[in-house]
Amino acid sequence: MIDRFVIPLVKIAIVLNATLVAVTYMVLLERKVIAWAQSRLGPMRVGPYGILQPVADAVKLMIKEDITPVRADKWVFTAAPIISMVPALIVYAVIPFGPTVTMFGHPVPLYITDINVGLLYVVSVASVGVYGIILAGWASNSKYPLLASLRASAQLISYEVAVTLTLVSVIMMAGTLSMVGIVNAQYNQHIWYVFAQPVAFVLVLIGGLAETNRAPFDLPEAEQELTGGFHTEYSGMRFALFFLAEYANMIVVSSVVTTLFLGGWLPPFPNTAVFHVLYYIPSWMWFFLKSFAFLYLFIWIRATLPRYRYDQLMRLGWKVLIPLAIVNLVITGLVKVVLL
């Protein structure tokens, strides 16, 4: 009874709440890191060093007037933010934060579930998130959101192809689709896949940036060309949902990249006697450290790089990333056949 119902429910509650808190603090982190990069201070007024800024933001967004444009499609306009938020949250179901540990005499796996199509689940749920963006743009019945949403969806579909193709080579290495299985494969093969599949790592990282609409691929929000992007007409909590979904997706991408390429909860040099001391740091700590490093990298990139133009973005996706992914896939297959 406890193992089947109570523990999973508690885990779901913890992960959901932790994610939402993490997402709001991601906003603060981003503002702070970018401010430091730009020799500013960032939020300083609410709480010491602006630490309560997310709370203030949440309160502000909740009590703001919720405007629906008169000519908007009411149902779709209301559903769009929810559609973009939900996939971002349910992906966490398969992300392994750590191995199975024993707590109070019960074996507790540090992940909500481990399904044998875990990685495909992540990809497919992420692909549903596109609807939030498309529908938001369409339902607003306004030209800039529509243009932005068309751009966004074209971008997401294109980069999804590249990322999924690249992931196949990781699946080939691990021989499994399960997220836990992939981490265990890295444990058994004594290597983080970032070293075995460097090309795939870079491709997934670039694709991940593009899929989360982050700089330098933040075209759907290019304020110089499209005013505010697909959420121009949104206000209040609905706008906040889009905002949170973007950050939740960022955390998803960094968690997935951590799991696939940096050995998830494994310390460096997994399963080798040399650095056994590294195992004294708890597994989930490793996972969060690595994910945090990626989040920091994303923010850093945003503070550094200019933005691509739409056609250049598409060219990069279709003419560089996808061919590279295919070549990488073929080479991985050949190596696997020849060596094993």
Binding site: S124, V125, A126, S127, I157, E160, T164
Partner: peptide, 13 residues
């Protein structure tokens, strides 16, 4: 999963 990925996530888009 493939149904969601290909049909819901790709073709209907």
């Amino acid at each position: 999963v493939i149904q969601v990925l290909v049909y819901a996530g790709g073709i209907v888009v």
